[in-house]
Design a protein around this nucleic acid. Structure first.
Length: 801
RNA sequence: GCGGGUAUGGCGGAAUUGGCAGACGCGUUAGAUUCAGGUUCUAAUGGUCGCAAGGCUGUGCAGGUUCGACCCCUGUUACCCGCACCA
């Protein structure tokens, strides 16, 4: 009989669907397991072969856990708001809702053809008003707690998308999505105060099981540094507040630098002798993009403010003040003290402007370079700090500054607040009303969802306002508080909003009185295992952790962290080793692979392709190899014999394979799990027969990877049950052991012989056997045996001279 | 520049975490089956010397620790990813 994958896969997908086999049970007494994969943006291009890598991996975990008796919630949905859909709608004059609907239908068909065991009854869509009702509800809660606020600010404006971008979405001063130039523009924006959670977002990483590189990138993104804020007096009378991570070096501060945007520059206009020069520099700096600023990294620029001097608070010395674009208004206080002896940037700057360099930590050579890595050094030239270590000096100076009232310990973060407004149509309307008397008032919660109005044109306006601003019936409303005429906010939310809490909705997707019931959240939360791409490890992960923590604070969710475990898969590259893209012409369409080789082959291949966490290039011939493996599995039917127990020559291998596959699935080592199943197949082929007990175990081990063919084979072999009704095979540690061992014998670390011994032989026996072994004897003849090292069951090394 | 990572056959990758390097798969070669192509089967396959038994050598490079190093330490090179003067 031929392996007809097409009809087999269709048959079983239909059966699974009809039996609703993978629906998570609402029986909260069962042990639960909640795996999660990032829900896709349903783009017009359809599924990419990268998607199934993640989905199949956790599908394997989900299927295994079900066989182990867990109640598993594995669900899928659509992160469907977003620019590409809107742009497509504008271009083709089709409502984004229709575009979304079509794309979703296509994605769903594709996902189903992969045989993924999603609970489709829990499907969600961020553009569904029943869903975004709760996205809006969360926003209102944030507003009520003072975590959403409006701010007039200079924002990144994409000249092509005509939209404000978050800092995080700007890459090299170009728009992350379209690559166009980004310029600065002042707008009033809704902001979310994620910075208030910075400390907890770092600290609570200790409580979760994330792969290390993900933790590191979260920490770097938040960027905590601890130091001190110090007040410097000036000859102008005004104070300058600076931030430093090295307050211990205060005696080495020989000048100050403030950001060109610093408000004092204007305030001192009349005092500054060279103001026209200063103004010119400032204009240049403002015009420069961040990218240009970075390109100038080698050469420091700046202008001294003539007529104003800073005063070092610890020794009263007057020091010059400069403006320079290497100091950013957006970080710290926008002003620094410069210690050229112990900071590279300050050193470069001091050299260029011939400023004094005072060493305050002994050990370096201030003439050649800044001595920055000086934690071990001893303080010098620092009056009451002399002789102390850097750490002691830090402590003492902070105590001194605090006592004198001129400074205090201070922690800073690179993390900035989240720009939450988008001037686009295809997003969740921000549910706020601007009342001339009451100010910003949230829409009454009972009036949620505030739905997107139906419009003709989604074109963004040239002045940068949202398309919603042109719809009077939407804009004009009454104040929910006082009832007077008022206007609505017309900006919409960013795509990150809907994806920040979707995993909560899966727990209870149809609830219309809460985002999910308490019982459901208590039972399912937190997500046990979340897998996704490395590209989402800073933004999406950080935003959703922030929202989750907020929801925890207001008593909505029971856990501090949303995801107990987070892993990341590597990218699938084109056959040429480059990133898959249309322009490179190396895109592989999963539909074609399924059509030609079948879903099981695609699943096996994507899991076998290499280290799950690393990028791997596509290879058509390897796909064929995986198909060949399944063909050989299929022909096991021809050599199937009766038998209720494992046969003695396969018993140990069966147990070892169960152990290996079980371990590997839990540890992201799908490639070696498959390799061990291939080895088992080779052993069975060599033997020429497989009995029913062995066959059943084999099929169950393979089932999570290749569910269709294994269901079919189990049925054909007369088991007559769904894999789902079976138990995951168990192994015994005792039976993994072989009765005879092969002990390699080394002489001076070089392999010289191998001994085949029964497993119960003692160390002494083995050494004696080795010494009388022909080859060993040859190599030790005429030499003195110095040492015999025996590693139990592993190896024997004889050291001779 | 900073942070993280990687380097193993012709290719993708294994190596129980200091104990037989190259599992498993692809590719290649030879043979069998086939009218032929494909499929399937059998065998070989890091390099090198050798008719062979076997020897030597081999995990980016240079050292070191160890009975023993792909694995640990020091230095170095190349590449990939992230961040961009964060005081």
């Amino acid at each position: 009989m031929k392996y007809d994958f097409k009809s087999i896969e269709q048959k079983w997908q239909k059966i699974w669907d009809e039996k609703d086999l993978y629906a998570a049970k609402n029986d909260y007494s069962l042990p639960k397991f909640y795996p999660l994969v990032e829900f896709p943006y349903p783009s017009g291009q359809g599924l990419h072969v990268g998607h199934p890598r993640s989905y199949t991996a956790l599908d394997i975990v989900a299927r295994k856990k079900r066989l182990m008796g867990y109640n598993v919630l594995y669900a899928m949905g659509w992160d469907a708001f977003g620019l590409p859909t809107e742009n497509y709608a504008i271009k083709n004059h089709i409502h984004p809702e229709i575009v979304t609907k079509n794309n979703v239908a296509n994605f769903k068909k594709q996902l189903k053809s992969l045989g993924l065991s999603f609970d489709w009854s829990r499907e969600i869509n961020t553009t569904d008003p029943d869903y975004y009702k709760w996205t809006q509800w969360i926003f209102i809660q944030l507003f009520k707690k003072g975590l959403a606020y409006k701010k007039e600010m200079s924002v990144n404006w994409c000249t092509s998308c005509k939209v404000v971008l978050a800092n995080e979405e700007v890459v090299n001063n170009a728009c992350e999505r379209c690559g166009s130039e980004v310029v600065r523009k002042v707008k009033s924006q809704w902001m979310l105060k994620i910075t208030e959670y910075a400390e907890r977002l770092i600290n609570d990483l200790d409580e979760v099981d994330y792969v290390e590189r993900v933790k590191v990138s979260q920490k770097n993104w938040i960027g905590r540094s601890s130091g001190a804020e110090v007040t410097f007096k000036t000859t102008a009378g005004d104070d300058l507040l600076i931030y430093t991570t090295r307050p211990d070096t205060l005696f080495g501060a020989t000048y100050m630098v403030i950001s060109p945007e610093h408000p004092m520059v204007d305030k001192w206009k009349d005092l500054i002798g060279n103001f026209s020069e200063v103004e010119k520099y400032r204009e240049e700096a403002l015009r420069k993009s961040d990218f240009e600023r970075t390109e100038l990294v080698k050469e420091k620029t700046g202008v001294r403010l003539d007529g104003v001097m800073g005063i070092n608070p610890v020794n009263g010395k007057e020091i010059p003040i400069f403006i320079s674009d290497y100091v950013l208004m957006t970080y710290g206080t926008g002003a620094i003290m410069a210690v050229p002896a112990h900071d590279d940037r300050d050193w470069d700057f001091a050299k260029k402007f011939s400023l004094p360099i005072i060493t305050v930590v002994a050990g370096g050579n201030a003439e050649e370079a800044a001595y920055t890595d000086c934690a071990e050094g001893e303080m010098v030239n620092s009056e009451f700090l002399n002789g102390l270590s850097v750490a002691e000096a830090k402590e003492k100076i902070i105590a001194y500054l605090t006592e004198e009232g001129i400074g205090k310990e201070k922690v800073n973060y690179k993390l900035r607040d989240w720009v939450f407004s988008r001037q686009r149509y295809w997003g969740e309307p921000i549910p706020m009303v601007n009342c001339p008397d009451c100010g910003w008032v949230p829409v009454d919660e009972k009036d949620l969802p505030l739905t997107l109005p139906d419009v003709e044109s989604y074109q963004p306006t040239d002045n940068g306002e949202s398309p919603l601003s042109t719809i009077e019936s939407f804009v004009n409303t009454t104040c929910p508080k006082c009832g007077k005429a008022a206007t609505r906010e017309t900006d919409t939310m960013p795509q990150w909003a809907g994806s920040s809490w979707y995993y909560l909705r899966y727990c209870d997707p149809n609830n219309d009185s809460a985002l999910a019931s308490k019982e459901a959240l208590n039972y399912w939360g937190p997500v046990d295992w979340y897998n996704g791409g490395m590209e989402h490890t800073t933004l999406h992960l950080l935003y959703s952790r922030f929202w989750h923590k907020f929801l925890y604070d207001i008593g909505v969710v029971p856990t501090k962290e949303p995801y107990a475990k987070r892993t990341s898969h590597g990218m699938i590259l084109g056959e040429n080793g480059e990133k898959m893209s249309k322009s490179r012409g190396n895109v592989v369409n999963p539909d074609d692979i399924i059509e030609e080789f079948g879903a099981d082959t695609l699943r096996i291949y994507e899991m076998f392709i290499g280290d799950f966490e690393k990028a791997a290039p596509w290879s058509v011939s390897s796909v064929k190899g995986c198909k060949r493996f399944l063909e050989r599995i299929w022909s096991l039917l021809d050599i199937l014999t009766e038998g209720e127990e494992y046969t003695s020559d396969l018993e140990s291998l069966m147990h070892k394979t169960i152990k290996k596959v079980s371990y590997d699935i839990e540890n992201l080592k799908f490639n070696t799990a498959i390799a061990s199943l291939m080895s088992l197949l080779n052993a069975v082929s060599d033997k020429g027969s497989i009995n029913k007990a062995e066959f059943k175990t084999f099929m169950l081990l393979l089932n999570p990877f290749a569910p269709h063919i294994t269901e079919e084979l189990l049925q054909l072999a007369g088991f007559g049950v769904l894999a789902e009704e079976c138990k995951w095979p168990e192994y015994s540690e005792e039976k993994c052991k072989e009765s005879t061992l092969v002990i390699p014998v080394q002489i001076n670390g070089k392999l010289r012989s191998k001994l085949s011994v029964s497993a119960d032989k003692s160390e002494e026996d083995i050494i004696n056997m080795a010494l009388s072994d022909e080859k060993v004897a040859e190599f030790i003849a005429g030499k003195t045996v110095l040492k015999k090292i025996y590693v139990k069951g592993r190896l024997l090394n004889i050291v001779v001279k």
